[in-house]
Design a protein around this nucleic acid. Structure first.
Length: 470
DNA sequence: TGAAATGTTGGGGCG
DNA sequence: ACGCCCCAACATTTC
């Protein structure tokens, strides 16, 4: 019997339970990708994500071709496309990997209803997370809202199962149904702004496995220490690969574990994978949180309305070099170091007092690893309105953070070139540099680089006031 | 996974 | 030699 394998964000052949199960059934396998932004509701992929998706699909198509099959591409709602494809091909069953965003869950529900009506058997598999959201709960049967007990409960279930190898050969059907070309989906931008993204990432399963290997060999042991330095390559940079499922979290887990000299070092990285699971767990149980604070009284916060400040933040023109370096890294490369994300988020929410949803929306459009669960958790964490969130009085000082995390100023110099010649002593606070130092470095504040758009000490008190009121 | 404000301690300069 | 004061360094509290 022919099986349709509906690829979604599991764009890999290895450790893909839906694909492996289809092969195990013995019949032909027809891999299908349905481009259906309307199935994602308000959160259809942003521009950077679409760029990545295009290249990841191209990579998947090549890999499937090498295994003897093709990737069928169609456009439209999954609940209409999939039963129609089953009719065209005579396929009797449909397999896929589960996702956990509210819109994705609804889309799966519609597919199940439509498949039942068409006499098409369906089966879904767990492959996107280490632990299923429904499987982890408190003693009272409620969802965890604090990471540490959540992770303790996960750990008590034992380590995740080891990843499965990719099937060698995929059995092809006698005839292939028609497919759209990848280009016709229009996922690529009309002007090529992605050259720097291309230089720092290789979308697709092969690139993901290479990156995971490199991280395992070079960095796991130094991860705990080096991950706080945005100028260094101490982080895994696996997030976009994990988002698109080019690498399963189980593969990432075991890659790190097998190579780490010190098991405690691997645990630090495993914990980060745990945060990814926690974010999906929260989104699954609290589906309104992408738009609404988990703790409702934060709806009453007296946010500022300042389009100019928002524009300056987006473009990396706040006058705080570390903040601007982070925001420009995002704009130029589609990615930002996690530590920098925390600082720019604190700056938007606390210093500018702008609603966290505005920051989340910008990240959604510009990040190649934009992921609804992670984006929601992290922005609510920064704003202090989410589960296990930063307390309202935790406000990052971008100057102190700069001196701590980027002591030589290398990160700032890379992304804020107009400050390149400024000595490390002043690079995080150019407004305090003596006149001669600025002249020497060809910096003219307010002309070549902006004055700070807010004064941090004043902004800090304003935020403490506003947050204390609720 | 914060930073500022406030409190405490102890070494050393100095009368 | 002794006590006083200053203040840096560290600790604790507060936002």
């Amino acid at each position: 019997m022919t099986t349709l394998v509906w690829f979604r964000r599991d764009l890999r052949l290895a450790d893909n339970p839906a694909l492996s199960a289809a092969v195990a059934r013995g019949g032909a396998v027809i891999p299908i990708y349905v481009w259906a932004p309307e199935d994602d509701g308000h959160w259809s992929p942003g521009a950077a994500s679409r760029w990545w998706l295009h290249h990841s699909l191209a990579s998947l198509d090549r890999a499937l071709g090498d295994s003897g099959v093709r990737l069928i591409i169609r456009r439209g709602r999954a609940s209409e496309i999939l039963p129609r494809l089953a009719r065209e091909t005579g396929a009797g069953q449909l397999f896929w990997s589960r996702l956990y965003e509210p819109a994705a869950i609804e889309a799966e529900g519609r597919v199940e209803v439509a498949a039942r009506a068409a006499g098409l058997a369906t089966r879904s598999f767990a492959g996107a997370l280490l632990y299923e959201p429904g499987a982890v709960q408190t003693a009272e049967g409620r969802p965890f809202q604090v990471f540490t007990p959540f992770w303790r409960a996960c750990s008590a279930m034992g380590p995740p199962p080891p990843p499965a190898a990719a099937p060698r050969l995929l059995p092809a059907p006698a005839a292939w149904p028609p497919s759209l070309s990848l280009d016709s989906l229009g996922l690529l931008p009309s002007i090529d702004w992605a050259s720097e993204i291309r230089a720092s990432f290789t979308p697709g399963e092969e690139g993901a496995l290479t990156r995971a290997q490199e991280f395992a060999w070079d960095a796991v042991d130094g991860y705990a220490r080096a991950r706080d330095r945005p100028a260094e390559s101490g982080v895994s940079r696996l997030s976009p690969h994990l988002h698109f499922g080019e690498l399963s979290p189980r593969q990432a887990w075991y890659a790190a574990t097998s190579q780490a000299a010190d098991p405690a070092a691997a645990e630090v990285f495993q914990r980060e994978l745990g945060w990814r699971d926690f974010a999906h767990h929260l989104l699954y149980h609290f589906p309104r949180t992408p738009a609404e604070p988990l703790r409702p009284r934060f709806r009453d916060l007296a946010w500022a309305d300042s389009p100019g400040a928002l524009r300056a933040w987006r473009r990396g023109q706040t006058g705080y070099p570390l903040v601007d370096a982070g925001m420009r890294q995002l704009w130029r490369t589609g990615w930002m170091h996690n530590r920098a994300r925390m600082i720019v988020a604190s700056f938007l929410v606390k210093d500018l007092l702008l609603p966290w949803q505005q920051g989340a929306a910008w990240f959604w459009d510009t990040l190649v690893d934009a992921d609804l669960a992670n984006n929601t958790l992290n922005w609510q964490w920064s704003a202090g309105c989410g589960a296990d969130a930063a307390p309202f009085f935790r406000i990052f000082n971008p100057v102190i953070q700069g001196k701590k995390l980027d002591p030589d100023g290398d990160y700032v110099r890379r992304y804020v070139p107009e400050l390149r010649k400024l000595p490390a002593r002043w690079i995080h606070e150019p407004w305090r540099a003596p006149r001669e130092a600025l002249a020497e470095a060809s910096v003219e504040l307010g002309v070549t680089y902006p004055e700070p758009i807010v004064e941090h000490t004043w902004a800090r008190h304003r935020a403490l006031d506003a947050f204390a009121r609720i």
